[in-house]
Write a protein that binds this DNA or RNA. Structure first.
Length: 456
RNA sequence: GGCGCGGUGGCAGAGUGGUCAUGCAGCGGACUGCAAAUCCGUGUACGUGGGUUCGAUUCCCGCCCGUGCCUCCA
């Protein structure tokens, strides 16, 4: 089965054909490490993690590159405001980012280049652009000359006239054209800076991705991903820089963009107070529930992130883990065809999820060897989505961080007491214990093989 | 203003030119000491007005509503 992806370049769903079927390259724009990741940052991570897993299944080798932007004005501002040195700030937020994304079961990329480790490549790239007349130096800055590239605007479908008409913000005096953008800017005393032919300074935002993508994936590679909002100006400018430096060769062949996240129907913003960091969500919700919520809408659709959505995701996972409970499922089962087909059709994760529900129903109904096989199929399907990666019992024992939850031992003891009461037909006492546990968020399930329990 | 996306049953959310999404919630049943979990059954859904068609939620046009981007925000 072939893979189809919606390519922003053509605005159409296209058959994915890698340059080299033996080795697929993918670049996704990563975080600027100045603050903890919020739920909007997590969506592309999870979406492209699903794509990465799928590509690894379909092709013998995949190189997934996701950068860390560790030089940026926001970092400088934050450091200045808090007094935390830049190195400490970027290291701390990078570590937290890793921990948070790990908790969402996102695989680490194969390469995670840091902008500060690629300044030399950026300077070299800028040098080529200046040499070829696509960039010019002015007042310590180096600017990309947008009018020098006839095809500028293809990805975002903007004509240069529109750009100029839309450039209402104040235009820096050193710009020859209002749409020109910064490749290199001067650093003042106390700001991070590197020596360059244009004086001590630091790179503009877009150039790092051009430089690092070239370094780790070559001039032209297969897939470039990121959030919808990056189409313009970031990706448009990356394309301009890279193509003009590389004799017009394409940068990426497939551009894949995920939709935005809103929270309870509103755009997420700090002023509205609906700004959720992944880290604080993880205190109250299992990582897999957050991940499933992010995958419950198609990646190109807007996603409204809600408490109720999280609750539903938790219930869905409860259902699947319930189906896996008991005798362990075989871990080497084949991925069910319909799940693979859903993912290959432009990463249709909601459809894949509906198949997981059907697989769970089938597993619940089956008996004996057929049950084991059905559980294996469900497990394989879940794992393909980066879900169902823990033991069912561990899942059901999960407790929110803040909860003064009963210990597992206390619960087990209460269950034993209740069993004794039940055996003595003292159902009033048995029900009292069950009610008491229920008030602590613990649900009991009496089965033929004894009583099992779960939190939440 | 320019470019774009979307309006599906109580909720979430796929999809399709002509019998089924799926899950949650609800209702009924089986199972259970009672529950929980599980299973079975259960719903005149596709913003609106036209058009194309034997037939449109699905294609085309208009309208209404919502929403995103327009220089450093994933």
């Amino acid at each position: 089965m072939p893979l189809d992806l919606t390519n922003t370049l053509t605005r159409r769903k296209e058959r994915f054909e890698p340059l080299d079927p033996g080795h697929v390259g993918m670049y996704v724009c990563g975080p600027t490490v100045y603050d903890t990741a919020h739920i909007g940052n997590a969506r592309p991570v999870v979406v492209f993690d699903v794509l990465y897993r799928l590509l690894k299944r379909l092709y013998p080798k995949v190189t997934y590159v996701r950068n860390i932007t560790d030089v940026d004005d926001k970092i400088i501002d934050r450091s200045r405001a808090s007094g935390e040195p830049i190195e400490a700030l970027t290291r701390r937020t990078t570590d937290l980012y890793h921990a948070d994304m790990d908790a969402l079961n996102a695989l680490r990329p194969d390469v995670e280049p840091r902008a500060t480790h690629h300044i030399g490549h950026m300077v070299a790239l800028i040098g080529v652009l200046v040499e070829r007349g696509h960039a010019y130096a002015a007042e310590g800055h180096v600017l990309f000359s947008v009018p020098s590239m006839a095809e500028y605007g293809q990805l975002s479908r903007r004509s240069q006239d529109e750009l100029i008409a839309g450039a209402r913000v104040e235009v820096a005096p050193y710009k020859r054209d209002p749409s020109d953008f910064v490749l290199w800017k001067p650093s003042r005393e106390g700001e991070p800076g590197w020596d360059s032919p244009w004086g001590r300074g630091r790179p503009g935002w877009h150039i790092e991705c051009s430089a690092m993508a070239k370094e780790h994936l070559g001039v032209t590679f297969d897939i470039h991903g990121g959030g919808l909002d990056l189409i313009f100006p970031h990706h448009e400018n990356e394309i301009a820089q890279s193509r003009c430096a590389h004799h017009g060769d394409p940068l990426a062949r497939y551009w894949v963009h995920n939709g935005f996240v809103t929270v309870e129907g509103e755009k997420m913003s700090k002023s509205l107070g609906n700004f959720f960091t992944v880290n604080e969500l993880l205190d109250e919700h299992p990582g897999e529930a957050i991940r499933l919520t992010l995958l419950s809408a198609h990646y190109r659709q807007p996603l409204d992130f809600t408490k109720d959505g999280l609750r539903q995701s938790k219930l869905a996972l409860d259902r699947w883990y319930q189906a896996l409970r008991g005798d362990p499922a075989p871990v080497d089962a084949e991925l069910p065809f319909e799940v693979l087909a859903a993912l290959e059709d432009d990463l249709n994760t909601p459809l894949a999820i509906s198949h997981l529900h059907e697989l769970a129903t089938a597993a619940n109904k089956a008996e004996g060897a057929a049950k084991a096989a059905a559980k294996g199929a469900l497990l394989a399907a879940g794992r393909e989505l980066g879900l169902l990666e823990q033991e069912p019992e561990a899942w059901f024992r999960w407790a929110p961080k803040a909860a003064g939850a009963l210990s597992d031992e206390a619960i087990e003891q209460a269950i034993a007491d209740r069993q004794a009461a039940r055996k003595a037909k003292n159902f009033a006492e048995a029900d009292r214990i069950r009610k008491e546990l229920a008030e602590q968020g613990v649900t009991l399930e009496d089965g033929p093989k004894g009583t099992t329990w779960k939190r939440g």
